[in-house]
Each structure stands twice: as C-alpha cells, then as structure tokens.
Nucleic acid binder design. Structure first.
Length: 659
RNA sequence: GCCACCGUAGCUCAGUGGUAGAGCACUCCCUUGGUAAGGGAGAGGUCACGGGUUCAAGUCCCGUCGGUGGCUCCA
C-alpha cells in the first residue's frame, strides 16, 4: 500500500495495515521518537492506529522548541484531560465523568461530584497526575460494537457517558471506543473518540488552573457539573512562559489600567455595573464621540437626542417588553395612575417616533438618525465585568430608514464605516459573524420570507465586499439578522463591538411608512448600526488594545512639562502656556522631585510626550523631547514641537514628532 | 441568577484565636537635580457590613453586600 507524505513523496509498504509509527520509523529514528500522533487524510489520529488503505499521512511531532503546533497540543491536552480525570477519580471515587475536551489554551473536564473541588485541592490533583505521568502508561484504545458498548456503559451506570455514546451512535458511529491509560481491564479507562498521545509520559508539564460550575448540555435546569480547567505543554519552560504571558495580559486588563490611569471607577454605592467616567476617561470618550460624529455628518447622518425613559407601551409595541423583561430594570410605576415607564433599553423605538413625527416622501430616504444614546439593561449580576458588561451604557447608535432598493447600498456603507473606524484604531484581530436566526426556534418575530430575504441580502453584501465571515445560526436579534464585529480582550474573551442589523420587523410593528413615486404608501426598511457598539465596551477594548498608551490624538494628557528644578518653573510655565494655547492637553510637573522621578511617573501614566526643560532650554528657547516609547529625542524649538505634535494629532497618530 | 474563590491603609499585599504591619502613593522638612524612583519625618485602619462561637475573632461559623473566574444569558 502507498502512503503519501506531506512533501509529496510516496512510501510503499508490502504488508497492510501499517501504523503511522511504522511509517515514522521507516523515515528515521529521530522522527519516530518525536512522533505523538498523525494526520491521516487530514484527520488527527493516534500514532498506533492501523491504516488500512492508501492514505496521505503527516506525522504530528512534539516540538523541538516552543509550544508546538495546534495538533500536537490538541493531542497532549486531550490526553492530560484524561490523566486529570483519573487523578480526580482516585481522590473522589464517586466522581462521575461527563465530558473532557481540549481547548485552545488547555482543557477541561466536566465532573459530577457533590463534594466541591476547591483551589486548595489543585495541588493534590496535580500530585496524583504527576504519579500517572511518571508511570508512563500507554494510552490503549479498544473498540466495541454499539450494542456491546452500550451494555458495558449500562453496567457502569454513568448516564452522561451513556448519553455521549448514544449521541455518537445517532451521529452514525459504527463502533464505540475507549481509551485505557495502561492495560485493558486493569487500568483506568474512559469512553472517548480519541486521539491521544502514545503514553502519559509524553505530558511534560501541566497545571490545574481553575474550577467552575457548568451544566449538562449547557442547560441551566439540568445536572450540575464541576468544570475543572487545566493546561499542559510538552515542557516546563513552555508552561512557565504561558503563565508569564497570562500575567502580562492581566497587566493590560482594562480594569487594572483603568484604575491606574484614573480613567473610570465603579462605586458600590452607585451600583453594580454603572460606570463613573473620571475626567481622563471622559476626555477620551469625548474625543471618540467627536471623531465618530464628524464622520457621521460627512456620511449624511442627522444627529438627534431622545429621553432616557419612555412609557412602557412604547416597548410593548416594539416587542422589547416583555420579550426582554428579565433583563430590564423593572418598570417605574406612577403614584396616581396605572401608567408605567421604562428606563430605555434600546434607542430604536424613540428614533422610529422621530421618523414618524412627520410624513415622508421616497425622496427623503434614506434618513439616518444618529444618537449617542444611553440605555439601561439589568444584566445578571454574575455577568458584570468591568466596563465590558455593564448595566448602563451609551450606544453610538443610529437607525437608517430606507427603501427596499436602498438596503444593500446602505448596508454596504455601514459595513465600510465600521471597517473605517476599526482601521483608524488599528484593530487587526477582528472576526466578522453573520448572525442568523435559528430556523427551529420560535423566538424570532415576523415573516419567515422577510427573514430569508434579509439574511440573503446580508450574505450577498459581505460576499460582494470580499469580507471573510462566519455564519452563526441562532445569533440574530429577535427582529432581524445582523453582522457582528467581534474582538477578543486580553484574556481571550470575545466581545461584540460593532454591529449592523437589518430589520423588517420594527417598521411593521410601528406601521411607519413613506409615500412612494407611484403615490402608494410603503413601509421603509430599518438598519440598526453601531460601530463602537457601546462607548463603555469600546473604551475597555481600546484600553487593552493600547495597554493604556493612547495615541496622541486620544491621550487625555498629551504633553507633560518637566522642569529640571524649581529654578526653571517660570520658563516651564511659559512652555505650558504655549502648548495650551496651541490646543495641546498639557500639564506641568512642578513637584519637588528630580527629573528621573518625574519621568518615571509620567512614563507610568503613559503620557505620550514629556518635555524636559532646564537652563539650556531656557537659554535656547527649546524643549527636550522625550517620547514615551522612543525615549530621549533631543532638543527642538517649542514652536517646532507644537507644529509637529499638531500634525500627529491631525493624522490620528500615523506620524510622530521628529527632531 | 447558579457554583467556587476572594474582600486588611488610596494601591499592591503580609498577618494560621492573644497589643493591626510593609512597600508605593499622600503631607511636611532637607535636597535644586538633564532622561525610568535623592534623603528624612509624619499622617493614614469600626480588618466590607451584620450576627454568632470564644476569656479573647482580621483569623472560626452563619447571613448580607461587593469583586474575581467560569456556567447560563446578552435587543
């Protein structure tokens, strides 16, 4: 039989089957030693699984250096999950295993166990794991036909594994497989599709990292599991390196930087999930709003303002209430009447009422109404996270009312706007998701035919624009499909920032219309869109993106003047006055400290430019420029600095002051 | 909302039932200095809050509030 290797070369074998290990040995002893698994016709598999027919084969190897590729880590972590499960069952024999997959950065195992596993237990678990790894037991696969397999599982009585097996069978599996860490019927085993590394000894370094509650099938009503998380690498150095990276990521966390740089605060007495924007944070927000609003005005939007509350009937008409009543602040009841008001959870109903406040001709369309609209949502307490998930936030919201013919063009323009915005801030790691309805669910409002049309329109526009995207069924808004722009935070959590949503539904609910060319009344189509998403979340991601070092145009404090000593306070004040007059946000550090100390503080505050002034500068009318990243740039005349700094601001930071 | 963990000075943290601590920040004094922390002194605490156990609670137990990590949810 013929085995084709990745370089295109072909190895012939007389006997069949062969294993990937045999192929590796035939190539070289070094390769065989480094082999941990194989990819056979693109499918990741065990090193010792028989290959029964001609195939393309790639050997997955343990890396010489560095953490290794995704396949090698997948095998390693999947295997470590087994070792951890065995360790946990040694410590708590009554523990029932459910499901233990590898993840991008590690693995977890869902375990049904009444005794809570605490962080104090991690060491014990790791100690047991270490023993299993040191025993270097092989991962041994055995298979049973579905009937025998189900019988074996039935005897064990673990309903989760029975459920997993049943699903595999329903999915077309013709055998059930187990992996034994060691010898069949002698050592610990787990129902598992595999694949795994050849033996436990391949696991170089591992760590149990956290424990959390999860639910069977993700159903909150169903059985509870303890989800124990861990990670594994081939070497201790790689694990240490990973943990170090985690620590560095933590230093970029917007909650840490936000506090350190005095950008925002959250106060217990004000309330959970309610952001207090401190002066520096508010400055950044204000600059962001100005930037976007200027862009919107260029693109034919009109600015509107609407109140923070509305009568509950408005949201009954829109469908937001009671659809989202669980995640809204409860209605405000009036003293002397039945009337109820709601803190506004969405801006759209208000904008619809602005549209509807006067009759419209087709000649008026599209109408684009924009507002930095503050909304309130009662997010579950366990969901609140810094500025990324909050209870009161301001959307950079706008609603476009257009004709059916204009939909694709408007939609395209909004997607371009979002891309322009993201590009301005230098976001590179943005994924785009087309969020569609789940055809099997009844939570979506409106006519399925409209849904199909809307979904297709979005798909076509994205395809036309050549934008790569993924489709996600069941992620649509209840009133329409949407395109979401998703960015990950420093600890890898995905957050939706920008969104563009197509809506045939609300226009119908509110019966809004325009007069068409043929003098008939037609219903406009709505596009909801928010490039930032919310000011709070955008700010959070921006803080992490820049690690607090905002580009000059966004920096709350752009320049800090550092006199060498109090003797030059006069000249320093003159410099500050000049900078302020030029519109640069400037402060003066006149503390009784040496310049080294002043620099350290300014660096920590991420001030883009430090201007150090002393006797030489006073005499020459210069400032000595220190840029926060580049360091000392030397002395230039103040006027020159101002000119160059202003150019950098104008360009949104694409050039820096030169000397 | 659920589970686990956590809550000590403005911040980062030490304090394993027996007199509340350190570094940084802050105030004052000395120092007047050229590119990432000069020196000294001082002030700052109902140990989140409420209850309990104990001769004695920051420390043990219960509850509440808040935070963190997940789960579930996210117009």
């Amino acid at each position: 039989m013929r085995i084709t290797l990745p370089d295109g070369s072909v190895k012939e074998f007389d006997s069949s089957p062969v294993t990937a290990r045999q192929v590796a040995e035939s190539i070289g002893a070094g390769l065989a030693k480094a082999a941990v698994g194989a990819k056979v016709d693109g499918t990741l598999t065990d090193l010792d699984r028989p290959i029964t027919q001609d195939a393309e084969l790639a050997i997955v190897t343990k890396p010489r250096k560095g953490p290794g590729d995704a396949d090698a880590l997948y095998l390693l972590r999947h295997s470590t999950a087994h070792v951890m499960a065995e360790a946990i069952q040694r410590l708590w024999p009554q523990a029932q295993l459910a499901y233990g997959p590898p993840l991008e950065t590690g693995f977890y195992y869902d375990i049904a166990l009444d005794t809570p596993i605490s962080t104090d237990d991690f060491e014990k678990i790791e100690a047991e794991m270490k023993k299993i790894v040191e025993e270097n037991r092989p991962f041994t696969r055995y298979e049973l036909p579905p009937e025998d397999g189900m019988k074996r599982l039935g005897d064990e009585g673990n309903k989760y594994k029975i459920d997993n097996a049943q699903r595999a069978i329903d999915g077309g599996a013709d055998v059930l497989s187990w992996y034994v860490t060691g010898e069949v019927d002698k050592n610990w085993e787990d129902l598992c599709m595999g694949p795994h590394v050849p033996a436990t000894g391949y696991i170089g370094a591992f760590k149990v990292t956290s424990v959390a509650q999860s639910h069977w099938h993700g159903d909150i009503e169903s059985d509870k599991f303890q989800r124990v998380y861990g990670t594994a690498f081939f070497s201790q150095a790689d694990l240490d390196n990973y943990l170090e990276q985690l620590e560095q990521a933590r230093q970029r966390d917007h909650r840490v930087i936000g506090a350190k740089l005095g950008l925002f605060a959250i106060d217990e007495q004000v309330g959970q999930g309610l952001i207090l924007w401190k002066p520096k944070g508010a400055m950044v927000r204000s600059l962001l709003q100005d930037f976007l609003q200027q862009e919107l005005l260029k693109r034919g939007y009109d600015v509107v303002y609407t109140p923070h509350i509305g009568k509950i009937d408005l949201y009954k008409t829109s469908g937001h209430y009671p659809y989202y009543s669980d995640s809204q602040f409860p209605p405000i009841k009036m003293r002397d009447s039945e009337e109820e008001y709601l803190l506004k959870p969405m801006n759209c109903p208000h904008h619809i009422k602005i549209f509807d406040s006067e009759p419209h001709s087709y000649r008026d369309l599209p109408i684009r109404l924009a507002e930095f609209g503050t909304v309130y949502r009662f997010e579950q307490s366990g969901e609140l996270t810094g500025m990324t998930r909050v209870r009161g936030f301001t959307q950079d919201d706008a609603h476009i009312f257009c004709t059916q013919d204009q939909v694709k063009g408007e939609f395209r323009d909004t997607v371009e706007l979002v891309q322009f915005v993201f590009n301005t801030f230098g976001f590179e790691d943005v994924s785009i998701r087309l969020s569609l309805r789940d055809p099997d669910s009844n939570k979506y409002a409106g006519d399925p035919a409209n849904w199909d049309r809307a979904e297709n329109e979005l798909r076509e526009v994205l395809a036309d624009m050549g934008i790569p995207f993924t489709e996600a069924a069941g992620e649509a808004a209840f009133y329409g499909p949407k395109v979401d722009f998703i960015v990950r935070d420093v600890i890898g959590r995905p957050w939706q920032l920008g969104t563009v949503q197509l809506d045939y539904n609300l226009p119908d609910r509110f019966k809004i219309e325009y007069v068409d060319a043929d003098n008939t009344r037609k219903q406009p189509v709505m596009i909801h869109r928010a490039p930032f998403g919310s000011m709070e979340r955008f700010m959070a991601i921006l803080i992490e993106h820049y690690a607090g070092a905002f580009p000059l145009w966004l920096a709350p404090e752009q320049v800090r003047v550092l006199p060498i000593s109090e003797k030059f306070a006069g000249y320093a004040e003159q410099v500050v006055a000049g900078l302020k007059a030029a519109g640069l946000r400037t402060t003066l550090d006149n503390s009784n400290e040496r310049v080294n100390a002043k620099i350290k503080v300014a660096q920590e505050q991420k001030v883009p430019y430090m201007l150090i002034v002393g006797g030489k500068d006073e005499a020459a009318g210069t400032v000595s420029v220190r840029e926060r990243a580049a360091g000392d740039l030397g002395a230039i005349p103040l006027t020159q600095f101002i000119e160059q700094a202003k150019a950098e601001v104008e360009s949104h930071g694409r050039q820096t002051v030169k000397v």
